Simulated scan of single mutants.
Amino acid sequence: MIVDKNYCMSSFLSFRCIDDENKAFEEDLKPRRFHPPTDRYPVRTSEDIDKFIRKVLQDKLDENTGIMLSGGIDSAILASYMPPGTKAYTLKCMAEGALEETERAKIIADKCNLDHRIVEVHWEDYLQLVPKLMKHKGAPLHSIEPQIYKAALQAKNDGITRLVFGESADSIFGGLNGLMSKDWLFDEFVDRYTFVNPEKVLRNPVSVQEPFERYRVGSGIDFYKFVSEFFYTESVASYTNALSLANVEFIAPFVQMYMDVPLDLTRVRNGDSKYLVRELYKKIYPDYVMAPKIPMPRAVTQWLANWDGPKRSEFLPNSIDGFKGDQKWLVYCLEWFLNLLDDGEIA
């Protein structure tokens, strides 16, 4: 294991993960990662998706299984397979102006006769849970991890030992329509995807373009392959870290699938993103209007509205000017992680 703090800081800010598995913030603090299953299921049609969901859930549908139910179509599809009375959990960030999914989720829960439960998420939860999650992960966190962890803890307290998630349908089936919207030149995709440019924040930034280079095609980039492989693994790691710490089994049927035919970018760019998943939704809920796509709600914009930026020497002064909430979170969480390291509370 190579200790390379500058690399790890730059990688986290750029990708929300430490890409190089041989590098870490400190010796014996290997960042926890997600490695895709080797036996993923090939999908060509919406019927294939339905068949595999049934296969994954066939031995899991008992009183020990709950579901995380957002307002989106992915978890709504999975909700239709759950037995009546299954406990369904929806996150609600307790901050003025935070995105709200509970009403839409309740519609689906009522339709499927599920036991709908709200998980309230407060800033105080982040203050309590983030250090535990960072120690478990060996790295700073994506902003969704504390609330996933709180939901898992609440479910476990309710007697649930496994939770079903709709994670990864977007990255696998063309749901991230912004990243699919054009044939990107290499450099412009790097700028578009990078969460926080390390050069704007760190005194000693390190080039971390290698993940992009793996997908370079001439002057362009295979952006779908990048999303369905690299982004996919980074995103799932947020769930597996939180669920493993809570000792709750992570069940995510979409994570175990892959597109066995080329993604129809014309359909995606004409407004039919994630078209195979949409087709299945329409079969299950023919009379329901699909909810618009939104990221998992998290109120970091509100909670960090008055934060004036990092103070440690690793960071440039006034480096978060103009940053959005999720960008502020990455810098805030990185500084928090470094402080905990110095205090001996992680390693």
Rank of each mutant, 00 (worst) to 15 (best):
F315D: 15
R44V: 07
E124A: 15
S207Y: 00
V227I: 15
F231D: 04
Y275K: 12
D125G: 11
K328A: 06
L153M: 15
E21D: 14
G97W: 02
V3N: 15
A155K: 03
K200G: 02
I346V: 14
K293W: 13
A88M: 08
P310L: 03
P140C: 03
P211T: 08
V248Y: 02
K293G: 09
K182I: 11
I294E: 15
F186Q: 06
E145M: 10
F223L: 08
F337I: 13
N177V: 00
E21W: 08
E335W: 09
R269K: 04
E96Q: 10
G138I: 02
L29W: 15
P297Y: 02
D125R: 06
F226C: 03
L78Q: 08
Y81E: 04
R40T: 07
V331N: 03
K92C: 15
N306F: 00
I346Y: 05
V236R: 00
D183N: 14
P83I: 11
Y81D: 06
L338M: 05
Y7L: 01
A155T: 03
E26V: 13
R269M: 14
E335N: 13
Q147G: 11
I2D: 14
L276M: 04
A305S: 14
V248I: 09
R44W: 04
N113W: 06
V119L: 05
L185P: 09
S70D: 02
R312P: 00
Y224S: 12
D39V: 06
K5E: 09
A105Y: 04
R267F: 09
A155W: 06
I18P: 11
R203D: 00
G71D: 14
I172N: 07
K51A: 15
I77N: 08
Q302G: 13
E188W: 02
D326P: 06
V164P: 05
N157Q: 10
F337P: 05
I346T: 03
